[in-house]
Design a protein around this nucleic acid. Structure first.
Lengths: 337, 337
DNA sequence: AAAATTGTTGACACCGGTGGCAAATTACGT
DNA sequence: ACGTAATTTGCCACCGGTGTCAACAATTTT
């Protein structure tokens, strides 16, 4: 038995399909109040028939799906790190507003253009800087879009972490502990991203404030390790682009028989779950990743439902604050250094 | 300017909309071959107009969306652990078959029933045992469904990890190293799940083969730690339900000044990325999580496209093999134990 | 009591594809 | 050249909602 439609209900109830539609939709537009008795009977019949609105038909009719696409390039391990929490916040908030999320990797088989521009989503959210064709396609189609953790396109609204302050405070922390030779390390597999410069900026500011030299590495881990394990003027403190680098470096130090924090102070970024349980527990720069997703959801929803008319001009950019979480991977530098 | 439709193209080309539709769709059904010249011209016009098929209209017409819903309860941190990789495999494979994935948490605001049963998805995949109402709804609607990593409903097709063999081989490994007092530990926050029993079964089999007692704990970590740090007949080897437990226990041992593996041999499960970099690197039971997602996608696609007719009866259940990854968290038990 | 006003209901066009079937065109055999 | 078959094309109903507008009923005003 095919699912019941409003027409089935209308026939059964002896009313028109419009009436059924209005009742079931609870349409109060034009302050109509379908006579309560009729309405109740219609609802009753709908219930008996197990009626469910056909979302495909509705989407076709209203020209909207209430779907939001999450765009990402899948060439890296996307949901590793903090993105899982961003994702969680995003989905939850979307669901609260009766929207849903589609996962759309733009770099694997399957035609992202068709999916995105064919109207299966009303808007989109991005996780990383997108390939140019994708960005152009979105712009050409005027598809509402919010960028998460990335402001590579100044014309698009975005929600980012306050990377500058985050790395500034991490650097300050090391300086306060007495470190003078501090490095900033980004793994070579990290793709170009606005946050790299911002991290450097915060780092550089803090260092130059003290007349210290901001040393920056963007290389494979073995090169970094070589620098850290050589004698002489090696860095005594290292600020990593993410907890991943910290994990790699921490592990290498352990293998070399060097101790953290006595031989090297190490700071991560992201405060992913496991950092608390590293040996030693990692000092890291944390932030509310869930909130990024939540704010992103709110922002895209607002631009979809056009609720920016009521006074508050829609913010086009938001920043999430960071917080330095001091644990045991940072300490004063060795005396002989 | 509203997007072009097949009617716009038809008018421009002076043909009927059916012809346009057939050409653009490359319809070869009934082995028609629209005259090449016309076809080329139609395609040309479609291109100029920037035509894109309206997927909402198509979905409405063919009564399918090519969407698959991923159902999960969001009360735990879902995409932590290995699920991110399962997700990756799932999405990639779905995209290859021109389908897409919707994220549907069934325990947060927003009406999962409407979304699922209203026809916005053609089928679904689950991550965990679902709440009963959800399962009943799916069954009542006869929505195709594949369960991932969970066989709690024998009537539904599923793809699981070979938990029995996995924990059997972990146990065997410890026995081979000389351990006699071996425990199996599941954290108290782990919700009831078929895999718990299967893990125990593999564990128990190996232990009883050697006449050893299979001790099982399902408790908060501090209780487990208390057992491990007390004197006397404490376990010398511990097999954990997941890498999470291993992380917790390993960390606690470190805090107590106890050494792994000399004081305790520790084995995890899942081989998540970070285990390789733990101190010491964790011996763990790994498997191809990506493959679970991939197989799940294949299976659901098959049941959606009805391709089970050609000879091969659709498998209703698949198992993914495990592999013991021996690293440095396991060794012979202390001599005095 | 008739007119004006308000509230409620039904008819119908529309969204943009799909696919069955009939009509038109072309190809082919005699 | 003509009839028949094969292929190509066009017509149109259909999918199930939404929303506008006109018709109608109920209520209030004069």
């Amino acid at each position: 038995m095919p699912p019941a439609t409003i027409y089935d209900i209308a026939r059964e109830a002896g009313v028109s399909s419009s009436t059924v539609a209005r009742v079931l939709r609870g349409d109060t537009k034009g302050d109509r109040k379908d006579s309560a008795e009729r309405a109740a009977r219609i609802r009753q019949i709908a219930d008996n028939l197990g009626y469910r609105p056909n979302l495909r038909a509705r989407a076709f009719s209203v020209q909207r799906t209430k779907g939001v696409g999450l765009l990402y390039t899948d060439d890296t391990w996307v949901f590793e790190g903090v993105n899982d929490k961003v994702l969680q916040g995003l989905v939850r908030e979307l669901r609260k507003h009766d929207h849903h999320l589609l996962l759309v990797p733009v770099d694997v088989g399957g035609d992202w253009e068709e999916l995105l521009l064919g109207g299966h989503v009303d808007g989109c959210v991005t996780f990383q800087p997108l390939p140019d064709p994708v960005r152009n396609g979105i712009r050409a189609a005027a598809l509402p879009c919010v960028m998460l953790g990335d402001n590579s396109d100044p014309e698009m609204p975005h929600i980012v972490v306050d990377d500058v302050t985050g790395s500034y405070s991490a650097t300050r922390h090391l300086i306060a502990l007495g470190h003078r030779r501090i490095g900033l390390y980004v793994h070579s597999t990290v793709k170009p991203h606005c946050s790299i410069q911002e991290r450097f900026q915060g780092f550089e500011t803090a260092m130059t404030e003290e007349g210290l030299e901001p040393n920056f590495w963007h290389c494979p881990e073995d090169e970094m390790i070589a620098v850290l394990t050589r004698g002489g003027a090696r860095p005594t403190g290292l600020i990593c682009y993410s907890d991943l680098e910290s994990t790699l470096i921490g592990h290498a130090m352990w293998q070399y028989g060097l101790k953290i924090p006595s031989d090297l102070s190490l700071i991560g970024f992201n405060d992913k779950f496991a950092t608390k349980y590293m040996t030693p527990p990692l000092t890291t720069v944390g932030f509310d990743a869930n909130r990024i997703g939540m704010l992103g959801a709110e922002m895209i929803i607002r631009s979809l439902t056009g609720e920016n008319s009521k006074g508050t001009p829609a913010p086009t950019s938001l920043q999430v604050k960071t917080q330095l979480i001091v644990r045991s991977s940072t300490a004063a530098p060795p005396r002989d250094a």
